[in-house]
């Protein structure tokens, strides 16, 4: 493994994409970044622009109004990238999503729009689970590169 592949594992930067959740998952995600769990120990940082990110962390199920933004933000993240879906909403739609009668406002989980690599179920998942999901994402990130 070269030094660049190593540094990819050493410094994954997160972009937090909130698309229509109830905010529960977002609070847990931010708790994972706050002093108690402090992921900066491992070099993980929250970045403000999707163009700087390695890992796209989505929460909530996508409202129909939000479809173009989700696609566009996904495209703005430079390769190699990994998408981590946090929460039951982002994994399968949870209580907002029901396929039988079409919901007028909600499309469903982000997997319908963009390829998701890691699912972190739970409503809302604990910060430990979020961190574990991010770590799985980092491992996938390393794998993606070595395959090329």
């Amino acid at each position: 493994m070269g030094i660049i592949d190593k540094s990819r594992i050493y410094s994954p930067w997160l972009y937090h994409l909130h698309c229509g959740g109830c905010n529960g998952c977002d609070i847990e995600t931010l708790a994972a970044l706050a002093p108690r769990f402090d992921v900066e120990r491992f070099g993980i940082q929250l970045v403000p622009s999707p163009r700087h990110a390695d890992i796209l962390l989505t929460t909530g199920c996508v409202p129909k109004q939000f479809i173009p933004m989700v696609k566009r933000i996904y495209e703005q993240v430079p390769e190699p990238k990994v998408v981590v879906a946090v929460g039951s909403c982002a994994c399968g739609g949870s209580l907002f999503y029901d396929d039988a009668p079409d919901n007028y406002a909600i499309l469903g989980h982000p997997d319908l729009l963009i390829p998701v690599d890691v699912y972190v179920p739970g409503c809302a998942p604990k910060p430990e689970a979020v961190i574990n999901g991010v770590v799985q994402g980092i491992l996938k990130l390393a794998e993606k590169r070595t395959k090329k």
């Binding site: 660049i4 990819r8 050493y10 120990r41 070099g43 390695d54 703005q76 390769e79």
Partner: peptide
């Protein structure tokens, strides 16, 4: 050790796609 963390950040950015 993460003494060189800022350097890792920079090296990682050099290994990424540029838009």
């Amino acid at each position: 050790t993460r003494l060189l963390q800022p350097l890792y950040d920079i090296l990682k950015l050099y290994g990424k796609e540029t838009i």
